[in-house]
Amino acid sequence: MFVSGVDVGSLTSKAVIMKDDRIVKSVIIKSKARPWESADEVMDMALARAGLDRKDIKNCVGTGYGRDKISFIDEAVSEIACHGRGARWLVPSVRTVIDIGGQDCKAIRLDAKGDMMKFITNDKCASGTGRFLEVMAKVMNLDLDELGEMSARSKQPVTFASACTVWAQADVIQQLNDKVPIEDIAAGVNNAMASRMAILANSIGLENDVCMTGGVAKNNGVVNALEKHLGIRIKRIRREDPQIAGAIGAALFAMEKASGGVI
């Protein structure tokens, strides 16, 4: 029995097809202006790569900001619940999930069974989200992947006076003009991001094990800095790409539904 999860986020859209608790295929694309177009494209790509058709999917759950606009899903579940469920599948011992998406960030506490106990999300400010890193990387003329790697090469990370995206951007430009090594600026950006995220994570009360999901979980500079800020070890997700955790969670909900469970 095949099931699928589609996570239409503000920056990327993800689709996961699962069978018997195993991922058959997953795809990530850049989101389009209209969520239903993103959902159609990412789902069709995943199906094509798996050699399947839409009618082969027994149940499909949608999540992400565009979830209500997806025509082919059977049910919509919040991305908070999906990230919790997906993280649990990726790291079975996890009790706290920190997810940094394109335009939001959230901390989720799970109980011993893996059910969501409580959560907290950022406000509308872009600080502490993937958008913050994207803006800074663009100013520094770097790829997002490079930004993460540079922290390791930094000898003297700069400190930003504010984690506000607008002010930090102005600071980055100033540092570039002052010919500060780009590694030190990049490390400063990652630290600023981590410090903002640590405030959110601490406010929910951390419980081990802790893991990170979302695209920013692939940025080692941020993950390492966040570990320092929180004073705990963050379990790295190795089983799959942490960016598809929400779509995995959606697929797991779909599997539960297809098996007669209630979401």
């Binding site: 209500d68 579940v77 919040s78 991305e79 908070i80 619940a81 969501m116 959560f119 999300t121 509308k124």
Partner: peptide, 15 residues
């Protein structure tokens, strides 16, 4: 910010 509000309320109900 309706999208964010909807997500939080839905997650609250789910929790």
């Amino acid at each position: 910010g309706e999208g964010q509000l909807r997500t939080r309320v839905q997650a609250f109900i789910e929790s």
